[in-house]
Amino acid sequence: MNVCSSGTQGIHIEQDVVLARQMARKLAQDRGMRLIDLTKLVTAVSELARNTMVYGGGGDMDWEIIEDGARTGLKLTFRDEGPGIPDLKLAMTDGWTSGGGLGLGLTGAKRLVDDFELDTAPGAGTRVTIYKWT
């Protein structure tokens, strides 16, 4: 897998969630992603960036434009140094929430992208990586 370009967007305040969405939209648009996939990606970014801010206490979104054979795509990693997720199985249950949300953030975001990786441990922060191919 080749990385063509990369960068980082900080996620510390609410406005950064909007900036992360706009950044993902621009990157995907530049790669010619079709509207439905673009909308799904931006929505997933919104959910994950909000999680980083609210539950992780802020963090970063790393972006990479990747090439894998004939296909190009976007790889986005949301990382924070927050408390981590103690019960992964529970967190990946539709409708379960530790905060005031609907519990659709993680599970919903997973459904909206092509690949989804979650790496977390209590006290060790959380890292969510998503892939969307154009």
Binding site: I36, L38, T39, T43, L104, G108, L112
Partner: peptide
């Protein structure tokens, strides 16, 4: 509501 938004919302589970 735009069609792409509607599709995404349903897939999200809302």
């Amino acid at each position: 509501m735009q069609p792409a938004v509607a599709i995404t919302l349903v897939e999200l589970g809302m």
